[in-house]
Amino acid sequence: MEHRPNYRNFIISELERRQKKNPAYSLRAFARDLGIPCSRLSEIINRKMGLSQARAANLAEKLSLSPTEKEYFLDLALSEHARSPVVKEMATNRIKARESITTQMGEDEFSIVSDWYHLAIIEYFQLPSSVHTIEAVAKHFGLKTDEVEKAIERLEKVQMLLKKEDRWEIPSENRAATFRSDYKAVHNFYDQLASKGRNKVGAAGKHQWDLSASFIPIKKENSKKMLEKIRQFRRELLAEASSDADRDTIYCLTLQFFNLTELEANSLSELAENSLPQLEKNT
């Protein structure tokens, strides 16, 4: 497999993954499951045929890629096959921007941070009532079994999950991650959570969700004190929730605190560093 970015690697990797589970799984069966002729799939893999934007998007969906991987897959295809020079250049620039991030973080870590369900899966396995099967996790979060299986593989690869007999365990209770405010990974992560939150608003039962916004007049130099109070509140809430022996589900808490009246580059960079809450555990 090539080391340079190439969308065909996603296709080949998925075929190898399925063949590992079922040695009798053939290229013809793979093409059938992807909904394309076997001859065309072979031509795509062997560089004899490219992918249009529509076909690339459809194929990314059939491969059960994560949201981040889908974006990357589509950009890789567009950078090679887009008819418009402008579209091709934009896709190439996005790939370069991603590579600058993954060089620092590692591709698996980038994916874990960007897609919300990786962190949710970690928390699920810490519930006393959790069932340690792919199917149970998929049902709990409304995910596809393929999505869960791949997510767990990534988490195991970066040692954020360890398989012991018939259970998954979390190796460290004190992992935290902080990233610069210009990391696309962070933006993707919170965009996904915002979308999940919007879909929950109006759910039956007031205890299921809470949405509020407050506009606070403050002295600018006190902003750091307020940020620390917010973080302290989060830590205390996490500690209280983790001590409940009967916990049986996962909720999401997102907090925002930002200056509405000015966006100075230095202060924004300093204040917008986000410690992802699901990666921060209190012992």
Score class of each variant (00 low, 15 high):
213 A>Y: 13
183 Y>Q: 10
131 V>R: 15
164 K>Y: 06
175 R>P: 00
231 R>D: 05
160 M>F: 08
173 E>V: 01
148 V>R: 05
169 E>F: 07
188 N>P: 07
192 Q>K: 03
193 L>P: 03
238 L>Q: 12
142 G>D: 03
220 K>Y: 02
167 R>V: 01
196 K>G: 00
129 S>F: 04
234 R>L: 02
223 S>C: 11
197 G>C: 06
166 D>M: 01
145 T>P: 01
167 R>Q: 13
161 L>M: 06
155 L>A: 14
247 R>G: 01
132 H>Q: 11
211 L>H: 13
156 E>P: 05
243 S>E: 14
214 S>T: 15
165 E>M: 06
173 E>F: 00
237 L>E: 11
220 K>C: 00
224 K>V: 10
238 L>A: 12
159 Q>T: 15
147 E>N: 10
180 R>P: 06
149 E>R: 14
211 L>Y: 13
161 L>D: 06
215 F>L: 04
152 I>P: 01
206 K>S: 08
212 S>D: 15
115 D>V: 08
236 E>I: 02
133 T>N: 10
219 K>L: 13
149 E>I: 00
197 G>I: 04
127 L>C: 05
195 S>C: 09
117 Y>S: 08
164 K>Q: 09
165 E>Q: 15
117 Y>R: 07
177 A>N: 08
190 Y>D: 02
149 E>F: 02
149 E>P: 09
228 E>R: 13
229 K>E: 04
124 Y>I: 04
165 E>T: 09
123 E>P: 03
143 L>Y: 08
137 V>P: 06
209 W>L: 11
168 W>H: 03
201 V>W: 08
170 I>D: 02
143 L>N: 06
119 L>P: 03
226 M>A: 05
194 A>S: 12
138 A>Q: 10
207 H>W: 05
159 Q>Y: 15
214 S>V: 14
191 D>T: 11
118 H>P: 03
147 E>Q: 14
229 K>M: 07
126 Q>V: 01
190 Y>G: 09
175 R>A: 01
225 K>N: 12
191 D>I: 02
240 E>I: 14
185 A>K: 07
242 S>E: 14
183 Y>S: 12
159 Q>E: 15
168 W>V: 11
121 I>L: 12
148 V>P: 01
121 I>G: 00
149 E>W: 09
117 Y>P: 01
217 P>N: 05
217 P>V: 11
248 D>Q: 05
241 A>S: 14
